[in-house]
Each structure stands twice: as structure tokens, then as C-alpha cells.
Design a protein around this nucleic acid. Sequence first.
DNA 1: GCATATTTGTCCGTATGTATA
DNA 2: CTATACATACGGACAAATATG
Lengths: 248, 248
Amino acid sequence: MGGQVMVDWSANLGPEREFVARTATADRVADVLRTRIIEGLFPPGTRLSEEAIGRVLGVSRNTLREAFRLLCHERLATHELNRGVFVRVLSADDVVDLYQVRRVIEGAGVRAAGQSTPGALDSVRAAVSDGERAAARELWLEAGTADLRFHQALAGLVGSPRIDELMRGVLAELRLVFHVMPSRQHFHQAYLPRNREIFELLETGNLPAAERALAVYLDDAEHELVNAYREHDGIAESMDEEGKAPSR
Amino acid sequence: MGGQVMVDWSANLGPEREFVARTATADRVADVLRTRIIEGLFPPGTRLSEEAIGRVLGVSRNTLREAFRLLCHERLATHELNRGVFVRVLSADDVVDLYQVRRVIEGAGVRAAGQSTPGALDSVRAAVSDGERAAARELWLEAGTADLRFHQALAGLVGSPRIDELMRGVLAELRLVFHVMPSRQHFHQAYLPRNREIFELLETGNLPAAERALAVYLDDAEHELVNAYREHDGIAESMDEEGKAPSR
DNA sequence: GCATATTTGTCCGTATGTATA
DNA sequence: CTATACATACGGACAAATATG
């Protein structure tokens, strides 16, 4: 009856088995749910039912609650006492704050590009190229991913694991915004040339100009996003969908 | 037998009952443990036994495990599969990274002091004064607290809730360092005059000078701390205390 | 190296409070 | 207002991993 869950570790047998990072079930469950949320399969407002998800994933409610705690701590979900866990619905103020954090982090990254090692800009360059290639082939989803990777790479110039993780969290939260907005395919597209511009300013060592270009980029993106979001916010509040949007 | 824990909410009866932020048991348990860890009652390396702590706090193992997840996510504890949860033991590299994050955040705070509202420097001023008062009365613990509040206030100049929380986490982690170092009473003390200096540069609007003073401050503090920590680290590794330090 | 004790990992069942139709 | 559904939290069980003698 009870007892540990039977995970099929034999899927990757061999001597590597020792090196497989065995993780707790709650961590793996959190990974799965995080992916679902980030990719928009569980749109903001969706209630994450203990019973339903536990049944689907084949884990107990106790384990599931541990996973929920992690997601709430990452701000991808919110916990309402005695009501359950819901995929986070960001406010316009949240978007403003997220861009404020981006200004701080990415700005620090650009400024740190001065002392960084020779190959530090490689991942920035790769993200710019990937974005342009994807756009040329009209793969808007990939172009969007490359755009996010570009900014993650900018944050990476600081060279701090904690900053990297903070940036991952910030971009994950921003994905929640994209999932409540219609037609976001072209959102990233328009900014791809500006990524190229910022990268080239970095490469030539013109850091003040790069910093200015980045600041303008972030201001523009924030305004576009917040304006569209405020509009959509009004729509979302007027219609009261079933079980999805928490009423209070 | 089973059933919800009987919390005595009657302690704060009256109409305010509606406004009491009822939190889940796991959150309250995490609060208690976080305080214990930050204050050094559970020094780094201490194993947090599910059975022992659950018995003392009067909560079930399941609830306790939810609380542990939160602490691990805050980097105040680490989870080792099938071995349990331990109070985090920071490496010297961690200290370096924490100061890198501080440079980014506090630097952004100082730079943001230009656009901030009139009363924004109030909490900075208060922290400086409190620190000096505490030092004058030789209350080193209070002086240390005021020092941390000063830097939290610097981060607060950015005006971002997320940055504020990040800074809280960073300072909480740094406390873990202080708890493995002997005689840290005078550590903060020496920096109090420099807090005053930075504040006055901010007040007079000399932001570039304030930024430079802060950078020097952080470099000095980092070096002092890392050097002392590396020494102590060597000592800690040679002696293998009972059950506290995880061997592998 | 082996047998044993301890502790964690995970599940299940269940009583009870809370929110909502 | 009652009924229903669900979250909250507890306790017990047992497998598996780890620590101990």
C-alpha cells in the first residue's frame, strides 16, 4: 500500500546511475507544473486542484502540497488559505516592478561587460543570431525564446549565480503576462534589431551607449506591455469565467 | 484524532478577527524556524530532524516538510535526499556571490536616490542614527542590526518590492556567515562611520561620490569577511563534529 | 563487510474547518 | 440555510536509504 513511489530509474541504467541527480518527487512534480505554467498550458487564474493533479501525476496530496509551496515561493502560483492554489494573475503594478528589476539586473550586466572575460559575450551573440535566424524563418515562438535568452545572457554578464536565478524567475513571471495577452507573437519580433544594436555596442566597448540603448529598450517594452495589459485587465475583470478567476 | 490544529484565535477576538492574516501552519512553522536560524540558535550545519522539531512544535511531519521546502528555497537550509534538511553552510564562494549581489542592488539604490521622492532618505537616516546611538551605548547587537537596516534601506531606494525581498534574503544568508565567525561584534561597528558618510553624500546629492564610497565599503567588507571565513573554513573542515557537519 | 537501528520518503485514511452553489 | 465540495492537518503504515555498532 504505502511506501515509496516506484520510479523507473532503469530508463537510464549503466554506470551513470550513480551520477543521476536523484531528486525528491516534490521537486520533479514542481518541475512539471512549472513547465506547464510557463508554457501557458495552465493559464493565469487556473486553479491547481490537489485531487485532480495528484490523480493525473500519480502522487499523493502530501507530496503535491510540497510542490505547490515551491511554486508559490517562486511567485508562479498563489496560495489562498482554504481555497487552494492558483496560477498567479499578475497586476499591472507587478509588470512595472518586474521591469524595474530588469533595469537593475540587466543594467548591471551591461556595466559588468567591461571587466568580463573574453568569451563572456559569446552567449549574448548566440542569442542575437538565433533570434534573427528564427525571425527570418518566421518561427515566432523560437524568436521569442531567443529574445528571452538574450536578456538572460545580459544578466549573466554579472557572473553571479544568484543574479542568474533571479533573472530566470523574473522572466518566468513575465511569461505569465504574455499568456494573458493576445497576439504576442510580434511583441518580441520588433525588439530583435535592438538586441543586435545593444550587442554591437557591447562588443565595441561602448558601454555607456549600450546602457542607454538598453534603458530605452526596457522603457519602451514596459510601456507597450503595461498599456496593452491595462486594457486587457479591464476586459478580464468584467467577464467572470467559471472557477478560473478568483472572485475576491 | 486527526483534524485541524486548534489555534487559539480567541487571543485576538473582536471585530479585527476578520483582518487577522490567517496563515497556513506550514508558513508559521517556517517563520519560527527562519527566526531560529537567522538568530543563530540553529547554527549552520545543524540537522533539522523531522521527528524532533515536529514533536517540539506540535505539528505533523507532513506539515513540517512543507515548511522545510520553503526554507530550502530561501537558501537558509539544504535538502539532502534521504539524509534530511540541514541549516545551510555557506562556502567562501557564496560570500563572494552575496557581495556581488549587494553591489548590484545597493548600487542601484544609490543611483535611484536621484529620482526618489523627498522622504525617501528618511529610513536611511534613521538607520544611521540608530546605529550610532547603539554604538555609543556599546550595544553591539543593536548596532549590527542597524547596520543591516541601513543597507536594506539603501536597497529600498530602488522602490521595488521584489528588490526589497531579494535584499532581505541576501542579508539573511549573510547572517549565516556571521554565525560561524567568532567575535563578529566589532565587524559592523567599524563600518558605522562609513554609513554616515554615504548617507551624507546621498543627502547632498553627490551620487557619484556616494556610489564610489559604497563600492569601496563593499569591497573592504567582502575582503575582511572572506579572509576570516577562509581561515575559519579550514579549521571547520579539519575538526569533524558530531552529527552537525554533513560529511560528504 | 554485515546486521541492525534510525530516519527519511511517500502513500493512505480520516476528522474538521472553510468557502460556495 | 443547507448541502456539497474541497482544503487543512493529523496520524499511521511501510519501503528504502542512511547511519551505527
